[in-house]
Nucleic acid binder design. Sequence first.
RNA 1: GGGGAAGUGGCGAAACGGUAGACGCAGUCGCCUCAAAAGCGACCGAGUGUGAGCUCAUGUGGGUUCGAUUCCCACCUUCCCCACCA
Length: 834
Amino acid sequence: MLEERPLTYDHRAIEPAWQARWEADGIYRADDADPRPKYYVLEMLPYPSGDLHVGHAKNYTLGDAVARMMRMRGNNVVHPMGWDAFGLPAENAAIQRGIDPDSWTRQNIDNMRRQIKLMGTGYDWTREFATCDPEYYKWNQWFFLRMYERGLAYKRETPVNWCPHDQTVLANEQVHDGRCWRCGHLVERRNLSQWNFKITDYADRLLAGIDRLDGWPERIKTMQRNWIGRSEGATFSFDIEGIGDARIEVFTTRVDTVFGVTFMAIAPEHPIVAKILAAIPPEKATVEAFAASLSSKSELERTQLMEKTGVPTGAFAINPLSGERVPIWVTNYVLAEYGTGAVMGVPAHDERDFEFAQKHGLPIRQVIVPGEGTGELVAGDLTEAYCDDGVLVNSAQFDGVESADARIAIIEELESRGRGKMTVNFRFRDWLISRQRYWGTPIPMLYCERDGMVPVPDDQLPVVLPRGVAFTGQGSPLANDAAFINTTCPKCKGPAKRDPDTMDTFVDSSWYFVRYLDPHDSTKAFDKAKASAWMPVDQYIGGAEHAVMHLLYARFFYMFMIDAGYITGDDEPFTRLFNQGTLLRGGEKMSKSRGNVVGIDETVETYGVDAMRLFLLKAAPPEDALEWTDEGIVGRVRFIQRVWRACEPLAAEAGRTPLDQLPACAGDAQRALVRALHLALKSAHDETSTRRFHYNVTTARLDELVNLLTAATRDEALAHDPAVLYAIHALPIALAPFAPHIADELWQRMGHATSVHIERMLDADPAALAVDEITVVIQVNGKVRGRVQAAPGVGEDDVFALALAESGVQQHTSGKTVRKKIFVPDKLLNIVVA
RNA sequence: GGGGAAGUGGCGAAACGGUAGACGCAGUCGCCUCAAAAGCGACCGAGUGUGAGCUCAUGUGGGUUCGAUUCCCACCUUCCCCACCA
């Protein structure tokens, strides 16, 4: 028997020691000059909220396994980590608890960095930065100025949530039931002049680029397409009766229904409202009261009202095609921000218009009928809008024309009269980046009494966020800070004021992945050659909650950078995207606010990092939601200990066994063992190559291997067999991407001076996977009736002969005629009888 | 309302056109032990049979196929995202 001694893998001693050693040796640093093929693995930039839980560990463990796997497959891997450090929580901490946002954030970063290292992750920490570092956000300001120069950053009046008591702008999440989160006063809408990035200029490119993103999940691409929301239609104008040259422009995708217009619906904010009321005053009071009742409500509330309401303005519009006179209504269901802010009301062919017309007794006229140009009206009394295409009726010269043709013909008619044209509208709007907050990147703009709006010159960047400002919760800390606001105009040297706003934190995360490639450059955002060499990100990993905004903004920014020539290559930054599933506990997403978190520190202390990592990889495919269970991780602790007991006593001996050739296998047990090893290797390679990352299957293969190893090492006759020693020697390599600590510890005990993590992953050898006897399944009429053993490559006739000797097969074939045989070599023979 | 994903043992899951349930968790039994824990071993979808086995079984109903968990259609259920975008 093997020597009896306490065989326990002591994670508390071993794991921290390896983490220290890796850091000291710098084995995860990426070298720009390394000639091997580059591979950029990136997990989405985390917000330093404070404490990590095992849900975060799920995300980082997968990224880490992928990075380690790619490194061991011979790539020059860059795998960086940093902090999305600006944002509202830090400012709330300042307001509520008087903590400086910078100190609060830095403390959180320190703790989270410690915890991420505790997970045994292999990041290149030399590339770390936080977006709240002036050395980083300086370049946010620099990019802003470059966009401004190109007309991609512009100012526009936009409504915001405004608390009249605290005299401050509120983020949507600070408004609860229409009231201020701090003081409970009713929130109003107020217009402020704010900065926007003209992302809509890139709408078509952002949309077209999606088609090339073969490595992205289909659902994310669909969400982006829907968010961009391209729709083709016509924009044309109606005259307003009695008001000189005033016209109302409408946008519609169904210009074929234009003869069915029975009213005009406009948003209360539409500028024409004031003109109408000035010229035709009788309904002034009603309309203004209606507009006022909506003005305080956010778009969200208005749309959640669901019930469509409105009031007539007393004015009439003239249908440019029919010459018909229709009333103009102000309604809550037309959005000022989309299209032209005015809609032609066609109740017969639009659900919303139908609902509105029914409620307000407006006429409903059908002009599209289903079918092949019959011209027959289905009925005068529609019970719902008919929204499909069909054939036009009641439409003058367009009667009998198919909808699709009619749309083209009518647009041409309108165009010939100078009344309208074909247009494309997008659902998404320009990216509003101004935030009336402190903890963000100051917008590098000045307002001079003499020179007007003046950009901050590049040599005066960064505009540094002042420290020690007052956080009262009232007003904006920056706007209130006279020392910050008051400055000198770079043109006239006269007095000027700074823009009091900061940028949306999505700006920070829109280009950080390029900064990692040249993180300490103080002269530029990044070096063109370095960035162009490393980009694009080969594998991006993160949650689906960023499916739209972050990923769209980052794509936009990257296209801008390519266009500006800051970087060369394809204009899509993320070749492959992997969406991790969430971690659940008690059926709910693990989160601080739900109070169901399991901490990293406790888990690592109790069970060990490797056990935690293996559980997170093993329990489910990575894209699925995964339920955390304490029993599950105990099972992985058992696995770790089984590995230790099987391998550690034989480590030195196994370390002398060559790995560059397959061992001689004296018997079935040896062959099975070597085969199990190579099946595990094959799974690891396959899951990595296909980018499925279903390492839950790979870990199952490792379980099978370790089960065989356990049996073999307990058998005195087998324990020192070359095949057994070979498998033991290879196990740390196979285990390294998933359980990096025990892997390196065993590797060292096998006599290796360098880390297992810089070893080459072993290839799966087809010779080791081969078997000398296979089982062929015999089916009769598609049902399994027997199995026969044969040598691989056995022919159909031989299998058939063997099959007929099986009693189960005979039962179902005797007295019947064999009509057909389907033979799948080495797998199956299906005998079809009748 | 629109879009997307998914329904397999007591549980997490595997197989994704070819032996359904690998592997793990929970459970049952055995060995070891004074005993327990740990460890090791066996069993572990349902029904039926002494047994070899047979029958049923991957949400429901159809279809394609020699053969379907896998592909197609419809329905049911659950989850996620977007929700008055003219």
